[in-house]
Design a protein around this nucleic acid. Structure first.
Lengths: 184, 184
DNA sequence: TCTTGCTATGCAACTAGTTGCATAGCATGA
DNA sequence: TCATGCTATGCAACTAGTTGCATAGCAAGA
């Protein structure tokens, strides 16, 4: 029940079409809330039916028309109300941790394969961290004064960076542990 | 498609009933894979139908009978195969981050309420960290030699500890940012 | 010219996960 | 004795999320 709210925040930051929202979810918003375009279109339609957003057909010479969405007063009210509600405990789903514990029941070949897989996974997180850091330099230069919205976006990005760094350090720990199994 | 695998790992570590699994998911396994008892019973039944686990009725003087589940050879094979598959990218869902960005569209009262809520949330994570640290002292004493399974459980727990610490530090950053809004 | 790829929207079918409720035995303490 | 709470299992209805596919216009390069 919160994709709606993520969409409201994103559309308040900047109105846009379902397609544009989907791309934002791949990049910025997707760091802390993932969604596919199918899901976004469906929810967006429902939000329109409920009057939380309005859509406007926008012709764009050359490319297909798009339906640009903006948040209504009612939509803002929904968001305000939601912001007052207690934060729900996170529903964690960390597949790799299950696999690591599962490695206790794998043979030597299986463990070797898992080491390789953790190394691959680590590389994707390194790339993610690099992307975040590049984005931070680009969007939040120290020299300029930031407005409230930018400061909030920045602190969320810092969370993403801290998370990526923590994961990388933990993956080193996992690799050391996997490689040290069966000794003494 | 991975609750099955989390259950297989848990039952290999220690056979048990649906009820017992549900309690493990509240504690240990739930750190990286959450599930309710309804979901567990349903999936367990399906896994039994597919021959991945077997169930044995166990009478226990006093308390209601339970159906204790154990992993079959076929179940082990399923797990082994799954361990070889690439780790899927995590589907992140971090409600608080959405709310923090949403704070840009809240009034002063709404932001004050969010600060209080972040403080409450921080306390729950402090309690979580304390629980992890106590569990670490209890289950993984430095003096004793650990077997492979214990070492793997320990490295996963260290991941939980690192995560909780990272979140706590980030929540401090969030609180500083929220309190500093609207200045200069 | 033909293929590839990007913009743009969406349906249908499926799987996963949540919420609310029901049942039942036994233990413990007010 | 009565309420509360823990052990133990489960159904039904719902909401959320995934997967596969379809359509269509235009641009750029082989």
């Amino acid at each position: 029940m919160a994709l709606e709210h993520a969409i409201l925040v994103s559309l308040l930051e900047q109105p846009g079409s379902g397609y544009e929202l989907a791309r934002r979810f791949e990049r910025s918003i997707g760091r802390f809330w993932t969604a596919t375009h199918q899901q976004i279109y469906r929810v967006l339609r429902r939000m329109e039916d409920e009057g939380w957003v309005t859509a406007e057909e926008v012709g764009q010479g050359g490319r297909p028309d798009k339906r640009s969405h903006s948040v209504t007063g009612a939509g803002r009210d929904v968001l305000t109300e939601w912001l007052r509600e207690p934060v729900q405990p996170e529903a964690v789903r960390h597949e790799l941790a299950v696999k690591v514990r599962g490695a206790a029941f794998a043979d030597a070949a299986g463990r070797t394969a898992l080491v390789a897989e953790v190394e691959r996974y680590q590389k994707t997180h390194e790339a993610t961290l690099d992307r975040y850091l590049a984005g931070e330099l680009r969007d939040f230069p120290q020299s300029e004064a930031l407005d409230d919205g930018q400061r909030l976006q920045h602190v969320v990005l810092r969370g993403g960076i801290a998370y990526a760094r923590m994961v990388l350090a933990w993956l080193d720990d996992v690799l050391d542990t996997l490689r040290g199994l069966g000794r003494d």
